[in-house]
Structure formats: C-alpha cells, structure tokens
Design a protein around this nucleic acid. Structure first.
Lengths: 339, 339
DNA sequence: CTGAAAGCGCTTACAG
DNA sequence: CTGAAAGCGCTTACAG
C-alpha cells in the first residue's frame, strides 16, 4: 500500500488520521492509491494502538422497569447516527434489571470492548448512571434522570407534556370541548408528564379537566375496561390517551357500544407504535423524534470518548414529538402537524 | 497479573486459551489470581494477535423483500446464543436491498471488524449468499435458499407447512370441518408453504379444501376485506390464516358482522407476533422457535470462523413451530401444544 | 509442563 | 512536511 503510493506507512496513516499534516499533492497521491487498492485499516490493530474501538454498547429488550424497550426503528437510527463518526453498535443483551445491565457494562468496559454505552429506559433510583460515572465510562441517556434532576450526565427526553398539549390543541381546534384523558396510573416516568400536559392544556382553555381515568396497566384490555366507565360517566366527544395501547382499548370499548370512532368519538394515542396503524380507524398519535434522539446520544458518547464532533449538542435536551393525524380523529387527509 | 500468580504472561494466556496445557495445580493458582485481580484480556490486543474479533454482524429492520425484519426477541436470542461462545453482535444497519447489505458486509469484512455474519430474510434471487461465499465470509442464513435449494451454505428455516398442519389438526380435533384458509397471495417464500400445509392437512382428512382466499397484502385492512367475502361465500366455522395480521383482519370482519370469534368462529394466526395478544379474543397462533434458530445460526458462524463448538448442528435444518392456543379458537385455558 | 521471543497491523510521539 | 522507531497487549509458535 505505502509502496504503491511511493510513501511510507506513516504517511498513509497521516492521510487517514491527520490529513492536515500532508501537503495537498501528497495527500491526493496517497488517497488515489488508497482508493485504487481499496485499502481500509484493520480495526483490531487500529483499536489496539489508538485505544479506541469505535464501538458503542446498548441493551435491547424489555427491562424490569418498563414495557418500553429499545424499538427497532430507534436501533436503526442509532446505527445510522454512529456511522456518521465511523462507529458501530454492539448489542449487550437484554437484561431485566439494573444489576444485570451493569454486569454487562462492567464486562465490556474491562475488556475495552466498547468506547462507551447508551442508556435507555431511565427510571427512579436508576443505579446505572452513578456506576458509569464512577468508572469513567462515556455514556448518555435516553430519558431524563427521574428523581435525580441534577444528575450531571447528558440526556435527552421527549416532551410528554408538550405532546399531550398538541393532542388537546388538535381536538379543540376541531371543535371538541368534552375531552377526556385516559392514562395508566401514576408513575414518575412518562405517564404523569403526559397527563399534566392534558390538564394544563384543558385548564388554559377553560375546559372541564375532570374527565380522566387510569387503567390498571398499559394494555388494551385494561384500557377498554376503563374506557367503558369513562365514556359512560362523562360522555366525552374525544379521549386523549397516554399510549397507543390504551387508545386501542378505547377504540374497542367504543366499537362494542356502537360508537363510531372518528365521527362520534375522537381518540388520540401516543408513541405512534405499529399498533397505531392496526386499529380501525387508524390512530392519530404522537411520533417520537428518533433521528434527533439518536444523533444526540451518539454525539455525546463519541465526544466523551475524546473525539470532537462538528456540532456539539447541549448537555440536556427535551425534544418535541410530532402529531400524526389519522382517522381516529376524523382526519380525512393524513398529515403531520409540527409543534 | 502474571507476577501475582508467580508465573509468566504466557502461562496466563494458556490458562485462558489452552487450559489443558497446564497442570491442575498451576491452573488453579493462575485462575485464583485471575479472579482475585479481576483480570480480563484486552479485546483489541486479543483480536489483533488471534485474528479473531469474536464479533458477528447482522442487519436489522425491514428489507426490500419483506415486511418481516429481525424482530427484537430474535435479536435478543442471537445475543444470548453468541455469549455462549464469548461472541457479541454488531448491528450493521438497516438497508433496503441486497446491494446495500453487501456493501456493509464488504466494509466490515475488509476492516476485519467481524468474524462472520448472519443473514435473515432470504428470498428468491438473493445476491448475498454467493457474494459471501466468494469472499470466504463465514455466514449462516435464517430462511431456506428460495429458488436455490442446493446452495451449500448452512441455513435453518421454520416449517410453515407443518405449522399450518398443526393449526388444522387443532381445529379438526375440536370438531371443525369447514376450515377456510386466508393467505396473502403467491410468493415463493413462506406464504405458499403455509397454504400447502393447510391444503394437505385438509385433503388428508377428506375435508373440503376449496375455501381459500388471498388478501391483496399482509395487512389488517386487506385481511378484513377478503375475510368478508370468504365468510359470506363459504360460511366456514374456522379460518386458518397465514399471518397474525390477516387473522386480525378476520377478527375485525367477524366483529362487524356480529359473529363472535372464539365461539361462532375459530381463527388462527401465524408467527405469534405482539399483535396476537392485542385482538379480542387473543389469537391462537404459531410461535417460531427463536432460541433454537439463534443457537443454530451462531454455532455455524462460530464454527466457520474456525472455532469448535460442543454439539455441532447439521448443515441445514427445518425447525417446527409450536401452536399456542388462545381465545380465538375457543381455548378456555391457554397452553402450548407441541408438534 | 513452562518460559523467552517474535509479531499481529496499525498509530503515536519524535527525529530529520 | 515526511520518515524511522517504538510500542499498544496480547497469542502463537518454538525452545528449554
């Protein structure tokens, strides 16, 4: 390779890692040779000498704290975002609790098998951030540090409050005023935040913010049960739900009563999961900005591992979801309204 | 580390990589020191010298050829199966076509960033196996080599034919005889195989195998449309579907006509996707043996990369799905019947 | 059965 | 601005 370009091995390395050190003609010559020979450096050798694997670890699958895991579209965005910096993703497995995840982090970190990790599904009393900080593992979290707002690590979260507000806005501007809320009960993570958004949007508009209920869990069956009572008692013309699952429950409950979703009753979901397109009519819902989330998290891990990134993100960020209008709110034309 | 155990560095290496070379007492002493110090070898150094990364590449996300991607539960099984051999998984991104995937394989292989790859979603005129074979990349495929049955690479597939047969068996033994089939039209991959299973099971039992229909696509809406015709024309007491999506369509069509699924009409899905638990009643379906699939594929890649595995699998295998009985076939008690 | 030597393929200081 | 040297932390032959 070096011989082919008529330069030394170090010059090739410089062309790849510190192009500013070479004169333009030399660089051009070396690059031409690189292209011609299809040369790419051996990752293991590069990792050994540079003390950098260009690998980021992440867990997948449901955790002990939430039904929400790393959905595949988000994983795909992580891969894309990492590739911008020449990084790849390593899947660390699916473990039910913090201790299991920490054990996996410990293993890969001591082997120097990754440059950092991404945390998802943060929760109250999360043991992971403190552990990672102590060990000096570069990391960033999807989800705010519930119960520890001053935690110094980088994180990004999606605005549940703002999303619910968007849903109320959409419904109110379509003429609805009896807008109920269905959540899945109290936890400190996402659910409450979404309920507060509904509450404030209603109050701000001077609408009756009493019609609300909590399902016994985030399932279709639990949602349908509670929806039946909610519909019976308050006769709402619209229901804002804290999840697509609960919204599907509302659709089922309405179907059973002969209430036509989309015309007699408007329903909004949340998360824009695959389920949102499986009900009839399809659910108006709130999409999470996965691409922005992935860029943010990857950039932070890459930065923390000692590499400069073009457009450094702030330490924390609350990103806005997007309302996707479908048939469940009478949307004739499907479209996206931005916040 | 070596000093702590009073042996040389090579003896530590032997204890880790070739324990049979050491005498029992030496091995015990070295292992004690390893545990005490929590020593684990640096992966980059190990990879450089052993020419082995212990990393396996895989694509995620939908492809150009199928709506079916690598579902998260399968990915989790891959991680578990790989860990048995000290391997990890690298996500190569989500690309729409063979060419995109091949480009990604080419990149990681030339960088020596993986020891091999796992292929999913095989299809007719699949360009990937031949490319990988030419380059000498260790690989194994989930899905038989459609259109090229004599392809010499290792593969595992799930028996669609046998699964449909299981469904018919289950229904017939519950007293059904007017059992219809709903598929998604002709393709050479999974769909036809499942239809043939229904056809043969029906014919073998001397039942009328005419009532069948093909939806215009594998969606709930398309399924509901075709189901309406099917129900109208043949008045079946049971419908075997080629997917959970189509089965959900049948449930919807039945609901609209006031036909009670589970008592008036039995419905079976296929794949046991999350959707199977979202309909009402929940769908009897066929579960894919993901753990066995993952073990098989990982073992083959590990073997092909030059490492012996305890219980070497055959080159090809057709694994049997398992019938999971739920409310849609009147299952009072949910349970699993093995093939 | 155990140890001293060589080397995996790069990058990182450091001379020229 | 470019090149010769050293070394990253292991494992793999090969001597003893």
């Amino acid at each position: 390779m070096a011989a082919h370009a008529g330069v030394s091995r170090q010059t090739v390395s410089n062309a790849l890692n510190a192009p500013q050190r070479l004169t333009a003609p030399t660089l051009a010559r070396v690059r031409a040779a690189i292209d011609e020979l299809g040369y790419v450096p051996d990752e293991a050798a590069r990792a050994l000498t540079s003390r950098r694997t260009r690998l980021i670890g992440i867990h997948i699958g449901p955790t002990a704290h939430s039904h929400a895991s790393t959905p595949e579209p988000l994983l795909a965005e992580f891969v894309r975002a990492a590739a911008r910096h020449g990084f790849r993703l390593v899947v660390l497995g699916s473990f039910g609790d913090d201790a299991g995840q920490i054990a996996a982090f410990d293993d890969v970190w001591r082997r120097r098998a990754v440059d950092g990790v991404i945390l998802t599904d943060t929760h109250t009393d999360d043991a992971r951030p403190a552990w990672l900080r102590e060990r000096g593992v570069p990391f960033a979290a999807f989800g705010r540090p519930w119960g520890a707002p001053d935690s110094p690590h980088p994180w990004i979260d999606v605005d549940g409050h703002g999303g619910a507000w968007l849903a109320v806005d959409h419904l109110a501007s379509s003429g609805h005023s009896r807008i109920a809320f269905l959540g899945w009960g109290h936890d400190e993570a996402g659910g409450d935040d979404r309920e507060r958004g509904w509450l404030e949007a209603m109050t701000t508009r001077g609408l009756d913010a009493r019609p609300h209920a909590h399902a016994s869990g985030d399932t279709v069956v639990a949602g349908a049960e509670r929806a039946a009572e909610l519909l019976e008692r308050w006769r709402p013309t619209a229901v804002v739900c804290a999840s697509d699952t609960l919204a599907a429950g509302v659709v089922r409950a309405a179907d059973r009563r002969g209430i036509a979703v989309g015309s007699d009753l408007a329903v909004t979901g949340y998360d824009d999961s695959p389920l949102a397109r499986l009900t009839h009519p399809e659910l108006t819902s709130l999409t999470q900005p996965f691409a922005a989330v992935a860029d943010f998290l990857v950039d932070h891990v890459v930065m923390a591992s000692g590499i400069e990134v073009p457009d450094p993100p702030p330490r924390t960020r609350v990103a806005e979801p997007t309302l996707v209008v479908r048939g469940s709110t009478g949307g004739v034309r499907a479209g996206a309204l931005s916040f």
